[in-house]
Design a binder for these strands. Structure first.
Lengths: 255, 255
DNA sequence: TCAAGTTGTCTGCTATAATAGACAACTTCA
DNA sequence: TGAAGTTGTCTATTATAGCAGACAACTTGA
């Protein structure tokens, strides 16, 4: 009895594993991988080593690794993509939609580290739809700011924000300096603004989304169209944001 | 995938056991029994239900129960006796033998609850051996006190103590009142006494030992012969104590 | 478009886990 | 002394765990 186990494992994690503990091999492998994920060994959203590689490093058969990964996938910790690899599934961040929605607060409250990144800024003319939302004439000058937001180094959403170029001519400069739309508005004496409306839909990630959100093409994105207004209800800015659907979960509290 | 699991087991793992957790059945049973022991479900030193009974209550085959018990026995938690049953093995209490040996201190230091119980008291005449130990003439009047000591409700030792009836005429009364030999001596102004010698041997439990120590007949007992003396080296009391060998382990510190 | 690398699925094979039954060896108790 | 109940041991069978190899289906990047 027990002779089979004495064969393999030379470098493995022999340390804590008793020869016969009544725990299946695939379970030990699954626990090992889960621990590495929890300790940050594999970045969230990133690809795990291939099944063959995991089999070698854990000194087990590939099928045993597959069973371990299957149990992890069943629990939502990883996601396997045929032909591509197996990826760490970041737990979806609960993203409440309220009148006051601040990305950094939401992400930070979930125990994640928020980060923002300015992608680009440009001047545009108001389309009919943006003009209607912002209560401006069609073709009015706008400043468009594109930014990427991350939580724990995993991209969460990429979005565009439009403001009136006449009212906030220095928006780009301010955003570049402070990295926060809240502070851009504060520089203009606006300390109280709220989300007036939020509309949600979904789409399939195109190449641009896939690149910026680190998604596979064909995976879903959540599209949010929002309008922020000041204390008197006057429109301040409009935004279109695309979220990696597999990383967030919107929470709408109805009253 | 995973449909295979849905097939078998209908009556099986009803309670807390998940359908497939990567833990063998015998291990689950072993953990279950260990938990019951730890929670005091089975008294220390007492008999477990029979293997057939355990198999029925856990809804597994008897051989699965046997494997579970084997793993527990290997760890020293239980002890199987052929034809009799399987018993809870109380971890042996480390019992250091020093010049100051107090049962309550030793047992308490090990995290156990010490208890003493007076069995009987009587008057005897000093045998030649006792007379020599206590430095009294042969036939001198002695008081004999028999007591039982327990740790966590498990009997540890049963012993006899002899004192001079002339020097300590009220020993029985005092011991009955205080339940401690230390306090009996203190009532006579003796606050400093120590163990002069300790001799250890072993024997097989007779019917009397078995009854009082809750042992099976034929199991080993440790026999301790000790002599306590006062600060000036004069003999105070002699004792003969029989320990349940399977519950204690003497520790002798040589210097 | 193609080659390399990935996951998914299939067929075997062997070892172990678990079940089932029977009987021996032993203890306990009447 | 004998019956009942216990643990120990044996054989046999089935289901699962794990190993091995092959190939399909798919993705990625050159």
């Amino acid at each position: 009895m027990l002779d089979r186990r004495a064969r393999g494992r030379a470098k493995d994690n022999m340390s804590t594993l008793q020869p016969d503990s009544g725990v299946t091999l695939w379970r030990k492998v699954a626990d090992s991988i889960e621990r590495e994920i929890a300790q940050g060994g594999y970045p969230a959203g990133e690809k795990l080593p291939g099944e063959m590689e995991l089999a070698e490093s854990h000194r087990v058969n590939r099928h045993t690794v597959r069973r371990a990964l299957a149990s992890l996938a069943e629990r939502g910790l990883v996601r396997a993509e045929r032909g591509s690899g197996t990826y760490v599934e970041t737990a979806r961040i609960a993203y409440p939609l309220r009148s006051r929605t601040r990305f950094s607060e939401i992400v930070g409250a979930g125990g994640h580290e928020p980060r923002g990144q300015l992608l680009s800024a440009s001047r545009e003319e108001a389309t009919r739809e943006l003009a209607r939302e912002l209560d401006l004439p069609i073709g009015a000058p706008l400043i468009r700011i594109d930014g990427l937001r991350l939580a724990d180094r995993a991209p969460i959403c990429v979005g565009s924000t439009w403001l009136s170029a006449e009212r906030f001519p220095d928006a780009e400069e301010l955003y570049r300096r402070f990295g926060s739309m809240t502070k851009v508005l504060a520089q203009h004496g606006i300390r109280d603004y709220r989300r007036a409306s939020t509309r949600i839909t979904a789409a399939i990630a195109d190449a641009g989304d896939a690149a910026r959100l680190d998604l596979g093409i064909g995976r879903p994105v959540l599209i949010v169209e929002g309008l922020d207004v000041d204390g008197k209800g006057r429109p301040l800015l409009a935004l279109r944001t695309r979220f990696a659907a597999e990383r967030v979960q919107f929470v709408v509290e109805t009253e």
